[in-house]
């Protein structure tokens, strides 16, 4: 099966930037929110430049919440959430009031503590401390740098965290759970390192059980 990536179009998110990076890696992509595209693609990417509440509203309005949960959590389709796309996986967020998220992972999105040491939002290139090299951070240095751009961060159980970053404290840079991957940073905007990470995700997707016609084990 020829790999094809569906970048989920939910009215927000830098969809074209993600598309450009996937195209650079020589893989087909489409930007869509249609059910058949989501069902037939080899992997899903949920990009994110947006506010949490508006994003969840859009996902509900486009009837994507149940569909995505079924396809990703139920059937094990490889999934990569980027930035807000990672935060949406949490149970809830406090961005502009308390809102509930997709709830695929045990976690909460909270604000950075105001401090005089660091400027908020956290914008720019920062080093990660990689805890789980496989499969997402293969061929990447343990302190590889990526581009971050966010005002809120995810707090989740230790065992899900695959990398952290340091910004006046240690925070979650990426999480993974079975077929679900998510990064707080923007791999599509992190040059070489980001492209390697996306390549690792695409490789994972190509060999994932859901794409080799086998029924995935229940999580």
């Amino acid at each position: 099966m020829k790999p094809r990536i569906c970048i989920i179009d939910y009215g927000m998110g830098n969809t074209q930037s993600v598309g450009n990076a996937i195209q650079y890696l020589g893989v087909d992509y489409l930007i869509s929110s249609r059910k058949e595209d989501i069902l037939t693609s080899t992997a899903l990417i949920l990009p994110g430049v947006g506010a949490f509440a508006a994003a969840m509203d859009n996902l509900h309005r486009l009837e994507l919440v149940d569909l995505l949960t079924d396809v990703v959590v139920g059937r094990g389709k490889p999934f990569l959430g980027i930035c807000l796309g990672m935060q949406l996986l949490a149970k809830d967020s406090v961005e502009l009031g308390l809102h509930s998220g997709l709830g695929w992972i045990e976690g909460h999105v909270i604000a950075f503590e105001p401090s005089h040491e660091v400027r908020i939002p956290h914008v720019g290139w920062n080093n990660c401390h990689i805890r789980k090299q496989e499969p997402l951070f293969r061929n990447l240095a343990e302190d590889a740098h990526f581009y971050f751009d966010h005002s809120f961060h995810l707090s989740c159980p230790h065992e899900l965290v695959s990398a952290t970053f340091d910004y006046g404290g240690h925070f979650v840079a990426s999480v993974q759970k079975d077929n679900i991957f998510a990064t707080q940073f923007h791999p599509e905007k992190s040059q070489r390192h980001g492209l390697r990470l996306l390549r690792n995700f695409l490789n994972f997707a190509a060999s994932a059980p859901a794409n080799t016609e086998r029924e995935n084990e229940p999580c």
Partner: peptide, 9 residues
């Protein structure tokens, strides 16, 4: 804009 796309944007 901040309400929809977040202030970081």
């Amino acid at each position: 804009g901040a309400r929809l796309f977040g202030k970081q944007c």
